[in-house]
Simulated scan of single mutants.
Amino acid sequence: MRTRILGRTGARISEIGFGAWQIGGSWGDVSEEEGKRALNAALDSGVTFIDTADVYGDGRSEKIIAAVLKERGGEGPFVATKAGRRLNPHVANGYTGATIEAFIDRSLGNLGVETLDLLQLHCPPTEVYYRPDFFGALDQLVTKGKIRNYGVSVEKVEEALKAIEYPGVATVQIIYNIFRQRPHELFFAEANKKNVGIIVRVPLASGLLSGKIGKDTAFAADDHRNFNRHGEAFDVGETFAGVPFEAALEAVEQLRSLVPANVPMAQFALRWILQQDSVSVVIPGARNEAQARSNAAASALPPIDDATMAAIAALYERLIKVHVHQRW
Rank of each mutant, 00 (worst) to 15 (best):
K146M: 01
L121K: 05
G73S: 09
E101Y: 03
Q276T: 08
N226W: 13
E185L: 14
F134V: 01
I50W: 09
A269E: 05
F268C: 00
S280Q: 03
N195F: 04
L319K: 11
V142Y: 02
R256S: 09
S14I: 10
I100C: 12
G214S: 13
A83G: 14
G74V: 01
P125H: 07
P183C: 10
V243S: 01
R327F: 13
I175S: 05
G97T: 12
V113N: 03
F135A: 01
K82S: 05
V152M: 02
T96L: 09
I304A: 03
S278E: 15
T126Y: 07
L111R: 00
A298N: 06
H184C: 12
H184E: 15
Q291E: 15
V259P: 07
N195L: 08
E114S: 15
D216P: 01
S31Y: 10
A191E: 04
R60P: 11
G285M: 10
A92S: 15
R148S: 13
R201P: 02
L116K: 02
G136K: 00
S206Q: 11
E253I: 09
V243T: 10
E159R: 04
K144V: 04
I50H: 07
K194L: 14
Q181A: 12
R271G: 01
T308G: 04
G136R: 02
P303G: 11
T171A: 11
V79Q: 00
Y176L: 11
L119D: 01
I199M: 11
E32N: 15
G74R: 05
A307V: 14
E15T: 13
E127I: 00
T239F: 05
G19K: 10
I198M: 11
I198N: 01
P260N: 12
G168H: 09
E238A: 15
A241W: 00
V252L: 09
V157S: 03
V252K: 02
F245R: 06
V47K: 05
T239A: 08
T115C: 14
K156L: 14
M265I: 09
M265H: 03
D105G: 06
T115D: 04
F103S: 03
A137H: 12
K82W: 04
Y56F: 13
T126M: 01
K146S: 02
T52W: 03
R225W: 08
I320A: 05
N177F: 06
I100A: 08
T126F: 05
W328Y: 15
K215W: 03
A38W: 07
E232C: 10
Y95I: 10
A11V: 08
L111H: 00
I164M: 14
A233V: 15
D222P: 08
N177D: 10
A92F: 06
F18W: 05
